[in-house]
């Protein structure tokens, strides 16, 4: 490592760290305010609430009908996970193992939904879904959420599959394994860490995906983020603490999966999709 010992360099390093720490502190404080507020009785004009209580969770659960909402959220999320896993892993296998004409074009096709922000393609997508009477239903939300998650799984899985030696597959073929047997008994066990990581990230993304669900959900297919949005939007109708309690429940339902996912992937990989994974070990 190169060491800079001039005063200017030291000042610069301190400034860079100060900005980083300031930023992280603010992020933590924003999260902490939500948690503290959801646990406080009355919080007006002081550093901390007067007293602490758990009552807001019970009232939020009742007021916002969180039971059914959570059930729908995870029903949608797990359906999206299963379908994007099925579509994504098979496509990634073909992309990793075969060189076919038009492969670059197909790759570009898979990159597009990740580059265009959800709100831009969400509006025409919602229009089409409503045209086919799927808009506002469970399957409408699932279809919309699959648009970014299928390419995401493909891009994460391609490098995972590429690093498996094709000779292993060839050996299995020599011993008479068919494509299905090869998948189940040879490839799957080796791919499990990659599949698990990408699907957990899909789960996190789907639970946290606001725009697409907002545009395509009906009253019975709302996920937790969308309900939270409507609650914050109509704040004043309900107590702030109650909304904060709901926000904490949302936070827990996303972060649990993130924590599990982080056991398998590096945080930089969540942002720098698949193609960067050669850098992030």
């Amino acid at each position: 490592m190169i060491r800079d010992t001039t005063i200017g360099a030291k000042l610069w390093i301190t400034a860079v760290w100060a900005i980083t720490i300031f930023f992280v502190l603010n992020v933590l404080a924003i999260i902490a305010t939500v948690i503290v507020s959801s646990l406080g009785t009355r919080w007006l004009g002081t550093w901390l609430p007067n007293a602490f209580t758990l009552n807001w969770y019970a009232s939020a659960w009742q007021e916002f009908q969180l039971g059914p909402v959570l059930f729908v959220t995870f029903q949608i999320a797990f359906t999206v996970v299963a379908l994007s896993g099925l579509l994504g892993v098979t496509a990634a296998y073909a992309m990793a193992r075969r060189d076919f004409p038009g492969k670059k074009l197909v790759m570009f096709l898979f990159l597009l939904p990740l580059l265009v922000p959800p709100i831009t393609f969400g509006i025409p997508l919602a229009t089409v879904l409503y045209q086919f009477n799927v808009g506002g239903t469970f399957w409408g939300v699932v279809l919309a959420n699959l648009v970014p998650t299928v390419p995401f799984v493909i891009l994460v899985m391609i490098p995972f599959i590429e690093q498996i030696d094709p000779k292993v597959e060839a050996a299995a073929r020599v011993f008479g394994a068919g494509t299905f047997k090869l998948f189940v008994h040879v490839l799957m066990p080796m791919l499990i860490p990659g599949i698990l990581a990408s699907l957990l990230l899909v789960l996190v993304r789907t639970v946290a995906m606001f725009e697409l669900t907002f545009l395509t959900a009906g009253p019975t297919s709302q996920t937790l983020v969308v309900s939270l949005y409507y609650a914050v939007f109509a704040s004043g109708v309900r107590a702030v603490q109650s909304i904060d309690a709901m926000a904490v429940i949302y936070m827990v339902s996303t972060l649990v999966w993130l924590l599990v996912a982080l056991r398998f992937v590096n945080p930089t990989q969540i942002v720098a999709r698949g193609n960067q994974s050669s850098n992030a070990h």
């Binding site: 933590l28 996190v204 939270l228 926000a247 949302y250 996303t254 942002v271």
Partner: peptide
């Protein structure tokens, strides 16, 4: 720590 705000999303950050 930095991946937290990305994961939690804009709605939660807005409420906080």
């Amino acid at each position: 720590l930095l991946v937290l705000p990305i994961t939690l999303g804009t709605v939660l950050v807005a409420q906080g």
